[in-house]
Design a protein around this nucleic acid. Structure first.
Length: 186
DNA sequence: CAGTGGATGCTCT
DNA sequence: GAGCATCCACTGT
């Protein structure tokens, strides 16, 4: 499979499940994401409204959008679609596969299930901060590799939102023990 | 396991 | 000044 990040976040999001993401050789397999588009009241760039924070969401598919969450954590999006239209996929959880020692050192934990199971946790584990905002996700030191085999995908409502909390734009790898929270069984 | 509250800083009104 | 696309520690079953 080939990843085309110039499509909308809703098309890209399920294709990212099972893909491999690393930064400086540290990372793993994407097991949970959420899609956000410019017509989404929960998006930082609702109605394509630009701000200092969300500028990189307008750079077009293949860039990183990193923002500060709750004053403490960093969260990583993969920007999708055409330049000028704010689309992004929040990377919520990885199954760690590459350089777990570096993750353990940064996180101060060794349980593999707690290293990258959450958007803030995975940025801490990989060493991603505001410095990476606007960088290309498909070039060094990032690396993004499409999945090689079909996967089973589950969906559900997105996490932690007060607006548009009903739409099922959260995607996960079925049966993964590394998602940040269980998906609704039905 | 479920629920609660604190930490903490930036964005936008 | 309010509100977070979060996480962790702590409480009570």
């Amino acid at each position: 499979m080939r990843l085309n990040l110039r499509r909308s976040a809703h098309e890209v999001a399920p294709d990212l499940i099972g893909a491999e993401l690393t930064f400086d050789g540290v990372g793993g397999v994407i097991v949970e994401v959420e899609a956000y588009d410019h017509e989404d009241p929960a998006s930082h760039a609702f109605q394509n409204r630009r701000s200092a924070r969300n500028a990189s969401m307008f750079l077009g598919g293949g860039h990183a959008y990193v923002y500060r969450s709750h004053g403490i954590h960093w969260c990583l999006n993969i920007v999708c679609g055409d330049p000028g239209v704010a689309n992004g996929v929040l990377i919520r959880a990885l199954e760690p596969t590459h350089n777990l020692e570096a993750m353990i050192a940064r996180r101060g934990l060794s349980d593999p299930r707690l290293l990258c199971s959450g958007p803030g946790r995975l940025c801490q584990a990989l060493g991603i901060t505001k410095d990476q905002d606007g960088w290309r996700i498909d070039r060094a030191p990032f690396r993004l590799r499409a999945r090689k085999a079909p996967v089973e995908i589950v969906t559900g409502p997105r996490i932690g939102l007060s607006k548009a909390a009903d739409v099922p734009w959260r995607y996960g790898l079925a049966g993964s023990r590394f998602v940040s929270r269980p998906f609704p069984s039905r």
